[in-house]
Design a protein around this nucleic acid. Structure first.
Lengths: 200, 200, 200, 200
DNA sequence: AATGAATGAGACTTCATTCAT
DNA sequence: AATGAATGAAGTCTCATTCAT
């Protein structure tokens, strides 16, 4: 597990677990409120209502808090997507569901998420990271049923992700609009060789 | 111009200009070597071979160096693209030329560029920034000659850019391959409604 | 209280209190030894035997140390005066007691006190300060029992204070002499309308 | 002469003299506007409209500017007093004239003057200074024609000066009032043994 | 004489991290 | 386990002063 490197101790007790949660939640709030510049361990500890010593009990250093936070965000995001996909009207196509889920899950706490992810990007190995952020693999196939090769997968996923990411970062006013979702769907389908008309 | 806010003083003399250049070049090197964490004014001044006082004569604070650097990188990138487009075989289609230019211009000094741009992203207004990074507008049109609306422009440019950006950041081994370029071209053409075959 | 604005944190623990004391004592010594020019936070911290970080835990900046020091000096002075007045031969008149107390309390550590007070004077609102330095009010009355008005109170107190202050700052050799004390007493009594003879 | 220590060169040319004046005037303005904290040589040079190099041609260091400024202020004050005394209604008594002159001369530019003097106080030998500030000696005599001894002179001059000084520093609203002037006159006369009634 | 770019010591501050209690 | 005072390395930035032009 990754977590072993990140949390100093597998938190067995509930109290510990709650401390960890508290700290991560506080970290997200501090990030949200003060940005990466204002993100310091003392501020996190204070907002979490624990002492700085306690914070260092659960996290070996500052960076590990950011990483844990980014992982938590990724997990939350993934869960949100799964929830959307499973709970949603199944008359919708899978690709549209994913896109919609992504956009919805990204709404709210954008800043903390952005900073956490960006901090992560700044300090980590990108490739490994990209994989950890990836959705559970499902061999992507084109309109003719041919499985995409790795370059094609890369282009498709990063392109769609990039457009969504830009909408978030640039705070595009059409971010939650139906039109934007439609265009993203159209982009991925066009690339996969579906002819227009295949709406829904 | 932005530069007025960024550089403390319009550098009129040659000596001053060279100091500014030195400092920016040193900044890029420090960024390259040490990342954003190790990027500090003392290190930049030292590598630039100027005193810390001189550095602060030209830049009001650390952040402004990063911003100036990112602007310089953007400009260099733009120039590189223009050079590629103008100097290249004109039998190639315009879209392919742009993509190729982007990728080539991005090769080398990836880390400094990445960090500078990421620093810029972290500290600026994203929308304004996106515009400043945009290529000179050329009304984009689809396969039928219809001009794209703003959401479509956004999706197309950000998608292609996002895929290229990801390749840079993740240091994809296929980044400079013909295959990757082809797929990017295919993505944009598919979105614009061109049917396969339109190679080149 | 002012102190809230001056010290970063209400020092609750004994250790903290002793740190504050240490720092202020060190500050007085540095001031004494090196004057205002040589008064820097590093020197103060070093002489106090605490780290520079600890110093800044208790004082937000250099100026606040000077202010706290001046306030401490004022308080010490006030206490000294009270001690003199209460412990002293009560056959002496009250005005003479005050004057004597003031002069005695001011002996020693003149330089530190001078600089601290002067620093305070340079940076504060004077009126407020004057009040904080004032002795506990006792409605002053003239030889005929008439209460002095505010201009008269001002003139009398500032005049006597001014002469004593000058003696301290100019390091007059007669500062601790009986003659000087006598003249100060004579000055205030003359102003209040007492005829000569009322010695003691 | 003192000036030899203060100005690097006896300014023989008119241009030099005007530079010195310019610099001192600029110094006063900077002091007035920014206080002692904001008083720096670059700011003074800039406001004076001379280069920093020129400033250092005339003053060996920053401190010397402050001292020259204080001396200039003293001289201006002295001249102002002389002017008041000579030009004024000679039905007024000499002591009242002096007091009035002092108060009027102090009106305006209080802050620069205060800071300059306070800076001087903080950095100089007080006794020497006190003498340089003193009015031209005139053997003071009491109501009976007896010459005051040195302690008496000290007490009287410093007391009156102290009250006036306090009024300036504390920006007392009654500073320019007739009542305040009257009380200062009364104080000095009472000390000298004049009985009440001797108004004017 | 004047200029002003350059210098660099050091003032001031922050904050990740440790450790005695 | 928790606390939080203390640490001090590392930084940013200022400004008195010099000196080549």
């Amino acid at each position: 597990m990754h977590d072993v490197e990140i949390a100093r101790k597998l938190p067995a007790q509930k109290r510990s677990q709650s401390s960890v949660d508290c700290i991560l939640e506080a970290a997200a709030q501090v990030l949200e409120a003060a940005g990466e510049t204002g993100f310091n361990t003392n501020a996190v500890a204070e907002r979490a209502g624990v002492s700085i010593g306690t914070l260092y009990r659960y996290f070996p250093d500052k960076r590990s808090i950011l990483i844990a936070l980014a992982l938590r965000e990724r997990e939350a995001h993934r869960q949100a997507m799964i929830a959307v996909i499973q709970g949603e009207d199944h008359k919708l196509a899978r690709d549209r569901l994913m896109i919609r889920a992504f956009l919805r899950a990204f709404a709210g706490r954008a800043r903390a998420r952005r900073v956490a992810v960006s901090a992560l990007l700044a300090h980590s190995d990108h490739r490994e990271l990209a994989e950890s952020f990836a959705l559970p693999d499902m061999a992507l196939r084109d309109a003719n049923g041919r499985a995409l090769n790795n370059v094609e997968v890369f282009v498709l996923t990063r392109a769609v992700h990039g457009a969504m990411r830009a909408a978030v970062l640039e705070d595009a006013e059409f971010m939650m609009s139906q039109e934007f979702e439609d265009e993203l769907v159209r982009l991925s389908r066009a690339y996969l060789g579906y002819l227009p008309k295949n709406t829904l």
